[in-house]
């Protein structure tokens, strides 16, 4: 009989009328965000960074700019170069996380936010000073030491450079194997 299919369909929509809504009222409520979420506002720890520029080299778009000075006193843990410039242009960033994967010293982490919208492209540029002073809630993406601790960037405390953990400093052979094993 004609119309049975439509009646069955209407029963489905009727059932859905009494389901709990699957949407949330965003600015007031938020959906649960997983700790691996690759977000904006990179967490960069100057104390760990040696200025090796692995991240800049591995970035598909080349948006990380690093300038180092070997003549100056190094402040960081790895003791290599003084970093004069570490700028990220997130206006062109696609949040693939390859820079984080490349960092051998665990100095760079993905951020966890998603609300750094601005009116002009210039404001999307993050200079080194801002990276230094930002509140750091690093994402656990590609950082098993944070995930092992059960750290949640949304509810957890901001982490300092001593809290984020670190692999052992890689030796020359390990770096060779990791980067250019031929």
């Amino acid at each position: 009989m004609y119309g049975i299919g439509i009646a069955k369909g209407l029963l489905v929509t009727l059932r859905n009328l009494f389901r709990t809504p699957s949407t949330v009222q965003y600015p007031e409520e938020r959906v649960e965000q997983h700790s691996r979420f690759r977000g904006q506002e990179f967490s960069w720890y100057e104390e760990r960074c040696t200025g090796c520029a692995s991240c800049a080299k591995y970035c598909p778009l080349g948006i990380i700019e690093i300038v180092t000075d070997p003549s100056q006193q190094a402040i960081q843990d790895g003791d290599k170069y003084a970093i004069e410039k570490f700028d990220i242009d997130i206006g062109r960033c696609m949040y693939c996380g390859l820079c984080v994967e490349a960092c051998p010293y665990d100095a760079l982490f993905m951020g966890s936010g998603f609300e750094r919208a601005r009116y002009t492209r210039d404001e999307l540029f993050i200079p080194m000073e801002e990276l230094k002073n930002a509140t750091k809630r690093p994402s656990t993406w590609f950082r098993p030491q944070l995930e092992g601790k059960g750290y949640d960037p949304q509810s957890g405390q901001p982490l300092g450079w001593k809290d984020v953990g670190r692999h052992e400093a890689p030796d020359y052979e390990a770096m060779q194997r990791r980067w250019a094993d031929r």
Partner: peptide
């Protein structure tokens, strides 16, 4: 889309992104 959204959430758990997974 309601069900697709749940798959995207699973992807976010897995790799931190919903659409551009890498």
């Amino acid at each position: 889309f309601r069900e697709r959204e749940r798959i995207l959430e699973l992807f976010e758990m897995l790799c931190g992104a919903r659409i551009t997974n890498s």
